[in-house]
Design a protein around this nucleic acid. Structure first.
Length: 430
RNA sequence: GGUGGGGUGGCCGAGCGGCUGAAGGCGCCGGUCUUGAAAACCGGUAACGGGUUAUCCCGUUCGCGGGUUCGAAUCCCGCCCCCACCGCCA
């Protein structure tokens, strides 16, 4: 959520900045509501003030033993008036709130203007796409040859966009997960967290998935449903919701491995083959809670932490800055890490690292006590994948494939694989 | 799921329906003392919103939502959460 004061003091400016990301702000509607809000609020509060002072007078008169009946008569109609005003105010504020909650973050000035992913800006590349002297397979064919990646079984159990992994492939996914967590906790100073996979609506409002993107989420039944987390960003960032973080404890660096659940509404026909786009996938997430002045340095650092994983795995990748048209709802700036996939001959997203500035913090009332002012102030929140484990598995399989259909195990993963250096193909080599 | 107890400021903890936005303590900030620090003592210290603005005024907030009342932290109803015991269970 953006600062409501911005809408009062500089509505045109906000509209212009949001237009950069293709969001049309209905300034006329906001202005009209805001004018009404102000008038009604002043009216309501003056009625409340009157009620308070009169009630106090009645209290004093009663204590003094005077006849209070005349005073009661004077107050007769006040309650109804006040009730009407209060309901009117509630309605206006609810309308205003609904608009405000659906407005995305303002892109940082360094974010390139653009319409879609074609306008994203490549920042740097690392590593060379491997050269193969045989015909490369994609991870689905590799997985089939290794006898451990089953999509038809998953259809039986659940439906499309699910997968079953077995044997060394299941272990490889676990190895990737452990390796990522150990690196972030051991080398990058993150605290490992275990968090709920089912969260309430408040948490999703806090990070910005609700109210606007409910169709992307899975939820349990009932009047007060739980939502399945679409990313660990939700529970981990919400750890500081309604909290005041001590300045000495900042920055908070948190990491968690969780499954993620996404309905993938609106992506029919996209990435239907393989593990790339699933309803359920594993991810290691990094979150930082930082002082506002540190947030852009923290974004660079966190992006670097995700890159470290790819470098240690020796997977070629590139870093792109998302343009204003491709950036997520809550983010002011986002770097995507895209790993090279030989099976697709393309760089594909494997991590997304964002600075949300105070956008989530304002929704969450996540604050810290600024020693300079002594006051609680909003924190900045940073999050990023470190990495998407399923896609990392895809990248390893495709980049480390051998002519005979086997797959080498990256050096850093071998300790997690019980010393196995290679997954041997068991099926038809072709 | 059942029974009982409880949710009050950054934290702990008092609180007869009206001078209670809330005692007291801790913590924090400033001061006295001290070479410096600690202790002691003195003073200050909630958040959010609105109006006005180097000031001040008003409103809201005692788990959440309703209700009673001129007036609710205090009374009533519903819900949530925490604790204890019982039941069930990995």
């Amino acid at each position: 959520m953006l600062d409501p004061k911005l809408f009062r003091n500089n509505l045109a400016g906000v509209a212009a900045q949001l237009k950069r990301r293709g969001f049309e702000l209905d300034t006329a509607a906001i202005e009209a509501l805001e004018t009404r809000r102000k008038a009604i609020q002043v009216k309501t509060e003056s009625l409340q003030a009157e009620r308070n002072s009169r009630s106090k007078a009645i209290g004093k008169a009663k204590a003094a033993g005077e006849d209070i009946q005349p005073l009661l008569d004077e107050v007769a109609g006040l309650g109804e008036q006040l009730n009407a005003a209060r309901h009117e105010l509630e309605d206006v504020q609810a309308d205003l709130d609904a608009i405000l909650m659906a407005i995305p973050n303002i892109p940082h000035e360094s974010v390139p203007v653009g319409n879609d992913e074609a306008d994203n800006l490549e920042v740097r590349r690392w590593g060379e796409p491997p050269a193969f002297d045989f015909e490369v397979k994609d991870h689905v064919d590799i997985g089939e040859a290794l006898h451990g990646m089953e999509f038809d079984t998953a259809v039986k159990l659940s439906g499309s966009r699910f997968a079953v992994l077995r044997g060394p492939l299941a272990r490889l996914q676990r190895a990737l997960t452990q390796f990522m967590l150990d690196t972030h906790t051991g080398e990058h100073g993150y605290q490992e967290c275990y968090v709920p996979y089912l969260v309430n609506a408040d948490s999703l409002r806090g990070t910005g998935q609700l109210p606007k993107f409910e169709e992307d989420l899975f939820a349990t039944r009932g009047d007060d449903p739980f939502y399945l987390i679409p990313t660990a960003e939700v529970p981990v960032t919400n750890l500081v919701r309604d909290e005041i973080v001590e300045a000495d404890d900042m920055p908070l660096r948190l990491t968690a491995h969780t499954p993620c659940f996404r309905s993938e509404a609106g992506s029919y026909g996209k990435d239907t083959r393989g593990l790339i786009r699933q309803h359920q996938f594993e991810k290691v997430e990094m979150v930082q809670i930082v002082r506002p002045e540190d947030s852009y340095a923290a974004l660079e650092a966190l992006t670097g932490h995700a890159e470290t994983i790819l470098q240690k795995l020796e997977l070629p990748y590139r870093v792109v800055t998302l343009c204003t048209g491709d950036i997520g709802f809550s983010a002011a700036k986002t770097y995507d890490l895209e790993v090279w996939l030989p099976g697709q001959q393309a760089y594909r997203e494997i991590s997304s690292c964002s600075n949300c500035e105070a956008f989530q913090a304002r929704r969450m009332k996540a604050r810290w006590r600024n020693p300079d002012t002594g006051k609680p102030e909003l924190v900045h929140t940073i999050n990023g994948s470190g990495l998407a484990v399923g896609r990392a598995l895809v990248a390893v399989l495709e980049n480390y494939q051998q002519a005979d259909g086997s797959v080498r195990i990256p050096d850093v993963l071998q300790p997690y694989m019980g010393g196995i250096t290679c997954l041997a193909a068991q099926g038809n080599p072709g």
